[in-house]
Each structure stands twice: as structure tokens, then as C-alpha cells.
Design a protein around this nucleic acid. Structure first.
Lengths: 237, 237
DNA sequence: TGTACATCAGTGAACGCGCGTTCACTGATGTAC
DNA sequence: TGTACATCAGTGAACGCGCGTTCACTGATGTAC
């Protein structure tokens, strides 16, 4: 090797830059006709390419581009949640739950089409490859960690409930991926918080609750109440 | 008028029957390529028509067919929930909540593409006309009635919480459509139950929680817990 | 009951459009000696 | 440093496909007298 590992040729830098640009254009076009209609030809046109065939230097197929967008979207919402979490000075799990909830919702409202790509109707005929699984677990893992911390504070969460055997059985595949010793009830509360959070955000982003206005007043209230019901609220209040 | 109002000509009966058949075929095709790609030509082909132009005797445009499917889907899930509710012998609101929840989920799992049509990503470029609004309120209204009944039993629900002013303001448009005297907290609990129910069902139908297995064990558990947390459970338990 | 006319269902061609992907190619950039 | 060769980016044509909608039309069904 006659050159340092880090030095990129102009060609390589251009390749990276144009790949980024293709994804940015595709992201924008997602909103116009939906992911099912994401069109390489339209992206090529907007890029200023004479024909779409040049795009095959960057992505081997339309589905590969779609996969890249999905991975990016999971990364982006994961970053939003984790950065919001890291920025919070407080150690209080309840306030951090609320902060993460708003971060997720804010990202989704700002990027409705990317949100639809990962939490909306699956694109028919497109099978998500394995690469998209891990990035999708970041937000639920963050929520789970919150509950784990709450459990470590002896006065939060209250008594952990016992769980019917068939519910326990349904949880087994998840428990296998977690450090040993996680109580069923803790996992259930995390899953419920995750489910509620994305249920509310999906309703808001897809317009099912437009009658509640554009603000986040109701959302703020509902996630506080849910957090309280699930035992995240400080025991004093 | 030389004939009785109810007597339909063969032509009229055929029209109704074929309209039904068109919708049935379109419903089936929804699953293959998604609502955005619903194709009049494909429906015509499956109907045995030589060209798609004959369909214009039944629907003035592709979007009109889509609207009919949406209205039907809301009707269908509304029927499923109301029938399940009516069949339950019990007066217990908690058991009825659980029954309605399962009815909604069962319908969604059995009809995933119709579910996606009404609760999934909005079809881009399609603006839902007013006709689709009212049928969409049946399930949430049913949930709301449950909470109203629970409130009438003095020992359920517990104390109704006071609500911050800006949350109250967000509720005003909804309160205006309801009989006067509905407490804010009652409406909030109904909205939260509705949000959780569809959040969970959407996750299950769209495959976001496949790791929990195919059964409804977790779902059954979570809606029971949610119902309990929201005050629907009998005070004894 | 029989006939003349109006209504409607479905045909088949056409308009104008869009798509993903392949392929042989030109010309520019990068590499090895 | 200079030259010969290999690699890569983008071109432009082509293949084979699909779409919604309009239009003039044929033939069957329904209606009024």
C-alpha cells in the first residue's frame, strides 16, 4: 500500500458525497408518493443525471436504496432519543421518560415520511433485510434501561406483579436477548411504555388525532400519566 | 310510478352485485401491492372485463373506489367491535373492554390490508373525503361509553383527576361533540385506552412485535393491565 | 300484448404517461512501473 | 516525473412492462304508450 489508510481519492470522496445526496433526494421524494412509489428515475432526474442507469454505480437496486433509507431513519430517531436523553441533566427517570417521549415525537413530526417508512404500513413486496433489525431496537432499549434504573431505586415501581405462565412464555424470546435476571413485570412495563409511546406518535403523525390540535399538550399529559401508572413517577408525588 | 318502490330490476340488482364484487376484488388486491398501487385495470382483468373502462359505470375514479373501501373497512371493524360487545352477556365494563380489544385485534389480524388502509400510513396524494370521518368514530365512541358507564358506578375509576388548563383547551373540540357534563379526566382515559389499543394492534399487525409470538397472550395481558390502570377493573380485585 | 324509444353495460382503441433494469459505450480519474 | 493500463462514472438507447382516463361504438335491457 503506497498511501495512508485514511487518505481518500477525489473519486472516493465524490462517491461518498453523491451516495449521501442520492439518499437525501430519495428521502425528500418519499413524501411525495410514498415509499412504494420511490423511483430511481425520479431521483436520477433530480440529481441532474441524464438517465437513471448511473445510479446503479451507487445502489444495486431500488430495494437497496430503500434499505439504506430505513437504516438511516432508525439511526436518526435513535440519535434523537439518545441525544435528548444525554442532554437531560436530571437523574430522575420520570423526567427522562418524558424527555425521550418528546424527542421521539418531535423527530416523527419533523420527519413524517421517514417515520412512516419505519413505523407505518410495511412496503408491500419489500422484505426488510436483517441489517434493519438492530438499529430498530435502540429506542425500546433506551426505554427498558429507564425501567431498569427505576427498579434499582427501591422506592419506585412498587411491587412487581407476578405474571401468568402463558404471558411468561411469550416473553421468553425477549428475555433471552437481555442480561439474566430481568423480572417479567419489568419487561412488560417497558414494552407497554414503548407500545404506548409509538401508538400515540403514530396517531399524531398520521392525523388520527388532529382534533386535539397541533400542539403537544395532550401528548405531554398522556405520557406523564402513562409513566406514572407504570411506576416511573417519584414516590412522593 | 308503475312499480313498487322495493322491486329492483334485473339491471339494478346486477349493478349492486357487481359493485360488491368490484370492492371484494379490490380488497383482495390491496394486499398484493398496497393501497397506493390499487389498479383499476387489474381489478377489471380479474373481473373478466375486456378493458378497465367498463368499471367507470360503477366508480367515477380510482379514488372513489378507494374511498368506498375505506368506508367499508371502518364499517367492518366497527361491526366487529359492536357485535362482540353486544354478544357479551356481562355488564362488567372491564370484561367488555377486554372483549372489545380482542375483537378489534382479531379483525385487524384477519384483515391486515384493510386495517392498514384505515390505520396505516395515509395514501399519498389521496385526501380522505368527509364521508370517511363518521364511520371512523364508532370504535372510539364505544370505548368512551365504557368509561362513561364505569363512571356511573360510583366505586370504579376512583377519583377523577384535575387537568392542566392547556390540556383542557386541547380537549375542547372533542367535548363540543359530546353530551355536556363529560369530565375532562373521563375523556382523557378514553382517549388513552383508544390510543393504547390501536398502538398495540398496529404493532402486532405491522410485525413490530413479532418476537412476542403469534398468539394474543401478551396482548390480552397488556389490555387487562391498561384497563386496570385506567380504573376499569372491579374495585374488589 | 306489441312496438318505438331511451337507458345502460361493456368493448376496444387510443392518449400520454411512468417504471426498473441491462448493455455497450466514451471519457475522465487513479495506479504501477 | 512520465507513460501504459485498469478502473470507474455517467450516457443514451432499448426491453418489456404497467397505469388512469376518454371516447365512439354495439347490443342488451327497461319503459311508455
Amino acid at each position: 500500500m503506497s498511501r495512508v489508510a485514511k487518505a481518500l481519492t477525489a473519486r472516493e470522496r465524490a462517491h461518498i458525497e453523491i451516495t449521501r445526496e442520492i439518499k437525501a433526494i430519495a428521502r425528500r421524494q418519499l413524501g411525495e408518493h410514498g415509499p412504494a412509489a420511490l423511483s430511481l428515475r425520479a431521483v436520477g432526474r433530480e440529481l441532474g443525471m441524464v438517465s437513471a442507469s448511473g445510479l446503479y454505480r451507487y445502489f444495486p437496486s431500488r430495494d437497496a436504496l430503500l434499505t439504506a433509507l430505513i437504516v438511516d431513519a432508525y439511526g436518526s430517531i435513535g440519535d434523537a432519543a439518545e441525544h435528548a436523553h444525554a442532554k437531560l441533566r436530571t437523574k430522575d427517570v420520570f423526567l427522562r421518560w418524558v424527555g425521550i417521549g418528546h424527542a421521539v415525537r418531535d423527530w416523527a413530526v419533523a420527519n413524517p415520511h421517514e417515520y412512516a417508512l419505519i413505523y407505518g404500513t410495511p412496503v408491500p413486496g419489500y422484505a426488510a433485510p436483517v441489517d434493519t433489525v438492530a438499529p430498530g431496537t435502540r429506542v425500546p432499549l433506551l426505554v427498558g434501561q429507564l425501567f431498569a434504573e427505576a427498579a434499582a431505586e427501591s422506592d419506585r415501581l412498587g411491587e412487581l406483579a407476578a405474571v401468568p405462565r402463558r404471558v411468561h412464555r411469550a416473553l421468553l424470546p425477549v428475555l433471552d436477548t437481555l442480561p439474566p435476571g430481568v423480572p417479567d413485570d419489568l419487561l412488560i412495563r417497558s414494552l407497554m411504555a414503548w407500545t404506548y409511546l409509538f401508538g400515540a406518535v403514530t396517531f399524531d403523525v398520521f392525523g388520527q388525532r388532529d382534533f386535539l390540535g397541533k400542539g403537544a399538550a395532550f401528548f405531554d399529559h398522556e405520557i406523564r400519566r402513562l409513566g406514572t401508572m407504570l411506576g416511573l413517577a417519584p414516590p412522593s408525588s
